Simulated scan of single mutants.
Amino acid sequence: MDDDAQQAGTVVLSGAVARTRPALFAALTEALALPAYLGDTWDALADVLRDRLDTGPLTLLVTDAGQLLADEPSDQHALLRTMLDDLAGTAPHPLHVVLREAPP
């Protein structure tokens, strides 16, 4: 595990296992121990992530980031980015998203 992933409040998520929206929600639910009632909308995800950010800062390290939501229409990636940007600007604790590609 690299230095970024060893920092407290850092969660590593593989873009390769989150190629669809349902897979992304499942991966985030598991990685962050999000509540089972999460639902399947961007608004629901924003709500539970905001609740998580009430408890402290969060860094989301996405490996193989080019594969994140790769099997979804491009607007889904844009909606994810917008939701994360909104959270980063308004949450009570910092949210950082780090996108990484595997070395060639």
Rank of each mutant, 00 (worst) to 15 (best):
Q76P: 04
D75S: 15
A36H: 12
D2N: 11
V48D: 01
A33I: 04
V97M: 11
L68W: 08
L84A: 02
R50I: 06
D43Y: 01
H77Q: 14
L61N: 07
D40A: 09
S14V: 08
D43C: 00
L58T: 01
L58N: 00
L84C: 00
P73D: 13
A102Y: 13
D71N: 12
G15R: 07
D3V: 11
T63L: 15
D71Q: 13
P94F: 04
S74Y: 13
T90C: 12
G39L: 01
G15D: 10
R21P: 07
G66Q: 10
D43A: 05
M1A: 04
R21W: 15
D43W: 00
T59L: 03
L95S: 04
L68D: 04
A44H: 06
R19F: 08
T20D: 09
L79T: 11
A102R: 14
A78T: 15
A102N: 13
A18M: 09
L49I: 01
A5L: 06
P35K: 02
A70K: 08
P73L: 08
G39T: 02
A36K: 11
G9Q: 00
A88T: 06
G39C: 00
L49P: 02
S14D: 12
P94L: 07
R21S: 09
Y37Q: 15
A16H: 09
V11N: 01
W42I: 05
L24T: 08
R52D: 07
L61V: 11
Q7G: 05
L84H: 00
Q76W: 12
P57F: 02
P35I: 02
V48P: 00
L79A: 13
D64N: 14
V97I: 13
L80S: 02
A44V: 01
T41Q: 03
M1T: 05
T10W: 01
H96C: 11
G66D: 15
R19M: 12
H96S: 14
A31F: 06
D64G: 13
G89D: 15
G39N: 00
A5E: 06
L13C: 05
V98Q: 08
A8S: 03
P22C: 02
H96F: 10
L80D: 03
A18F: 09
Q67D: 14
F25Y: 13
P73W: 12
P94Q: 04
L53M: 03
A91M: 02
L24E: 06
L58A: 02
A26R: 12
L69N: 04
A91N: 05
F25E: 03
P57V: 01
L34Q: 08
A78P: 06
P104V: 15
D85C: 10
A88Q: 06
A65N: 13
G89P: 14
A46Q: 07
G15K: 08
S74N: 14
V17G: 11
R19E: 12
M83H: 01
E72F: 08
A91C: 03
V12H: 00
P104Y: 12
G9N: 00
E72I: 04
P57E: 05
A36F: 09
D3M: 10
D54T: 11
E30Y: 13
P22H: 03
T90N: 14
G89L: 15
V62I: 15
D47V: 06
P35G: 00
S14K: 10
W42Q: 07
L80V: 01
M83R: 04
